[in-house]
Simulated scan of single mutants.
Amino acid sequence: MSPAVIVTDSTATLSEATAAERGIVVVPLQVVIGANVYDEGAEGATPEMVAAALREWTPVSTSRPTPAALAEVYEQAARDGATEVVSVHLSGEMSGTFESAQLAAREASIRVIPVDSRQVGVATGFAVLAASDVLAAGGTADEAAAAARERAAASSSLFYVDTLDYLRRGGRIGAAAAIVGGALSVKPLLQIQDGRVASLEKVRTTARALSRLEELAVQAAGDRQIDLCVAHLASPERAEQLTGRLTERLADNLEGRAVWCAELGAVLGAHVGPGMLAVCVAPRL
């Protein structure tokens, strides 16, 4: 194992193959469906399970990894030969995971650098990969942490939801905003801003919302070199169509790199609901 190791959480949406290839340790968050508790992942809570439960109005909630769980991950890294850990997590405004990392870091036998990405989902994942690239190139743990923060801050997370109800239920958006949205029958476009879900635009139809999401992604890319991900929950056809259009329109920005099209993980899916479509535009460092 490298003297420095990267730890992240399951909401970063890294594939098992990518994490294994790069030596990234992924700690799962939990999903509570009814009375059952599952770790997020292929062997536990899947997006399909969450979407089905939400449609059936089965109670769904999520919980962070405990400080003790993260402390054990850090100690295992130390036993495997690591001398430092860079621990990159989803926004501390949205989850207590970063706080757990901070608490565990204080007791760790090796140096741990907790990083609040101030992002969610794939934007956190791209930040993790930026940190991994720095370590692979011989950089220090501090340089890797700085790269993660820089890429996360430069990334744009834009998304559409069919309804604000799921965000309201999970406390991720105010009840008043959800009620107004429902009353006006608007289709909300949202963004991650300062680590929180924020309103971006409101349009009247789903078709208009998806067209606008595409335009906003193109604007966010500008003339920069980017990595791009389209994510969805239980909406694969919409996601594939958007992926195709953005692949064509942003060909110069991508320089042959494929657009990553994936289903949103179970934890984030629990808060946005079926029909969600998101785009993450991550400028390359």
Rank of each mutant, 00 (worst) to 15 (best):
M1P: 06
S2N: 13
P3L: 15
P3A: 14
P3N: 15
D9Y: 05
D9M: 03
S10K: 00
L14R: 06
E16F: 00
A19I: 01
E21C: 04
I24L: 05
I33F: 03
A35G: 13
N36K: 12
Y38L: 13
A42K: 06
A45N: 12
P47E: 04
P47W: 07
V50R: 01
A53D: 08
L54S: 06
T58H: 08
A68W: 02
A68F: 12
A71K: 10
A71S: 14
E75V: 04
V85N: 03
S87D: 13
V88G: 05
V88I: 15
G92Y: 00
M94K: 01
E99F: 02
S100C: 00
A105V: 08
A105L: 01
I110L: 15
V120H: 01
G121D: 09
V122G: 03
A123V: 11
T124K: 02
A127E: 06
V128T: 11
A131M: 00
D133L: 05
A137I: 06
G138D: 10
G139Y: 06
A144K: 01
A146M: 04
A147C: 12
A152S: 01
S157E: 08
L158E: 08
L158Y: 05
F159R: 06
F159P: 04
Y160V: 11
D165W: 08
Y166G: 02
L167E: 03
R169A: 14
R169V: 09
G170C: 10
G171V: 08
I173P: 01
A175E: 10
A175C: 06
I179Q: 13
V180S: 11
A183F: 12
S185L: 06
V186K: 07
I192V: 15
V203I: 11
V203Y: 06
R204F: 11
A207K: 13
A207Y: 11
R208Q: 14
R212D: 14
E215P: 06
A217Q: 03
A217Y: 11
A220D: 11
D223S: 09
D227W: 03
H232M: 09
H232S: 12
L233H: 09
A234R: 05
P236L: 07
E237V: 15
A239R: 06
Q241Y: 03
L242A: 07
G244W: 07
E248L: 11
D252K: 13
A258H: 02
C261A: 11
A266N: 03
L268G: 09
G269P: 05
A270I: 10
P274C: 05
V279G: 10
C280G: 14
V281H: 02
A282F: 10
P283E: 11
R284L: 14
L285H: 03
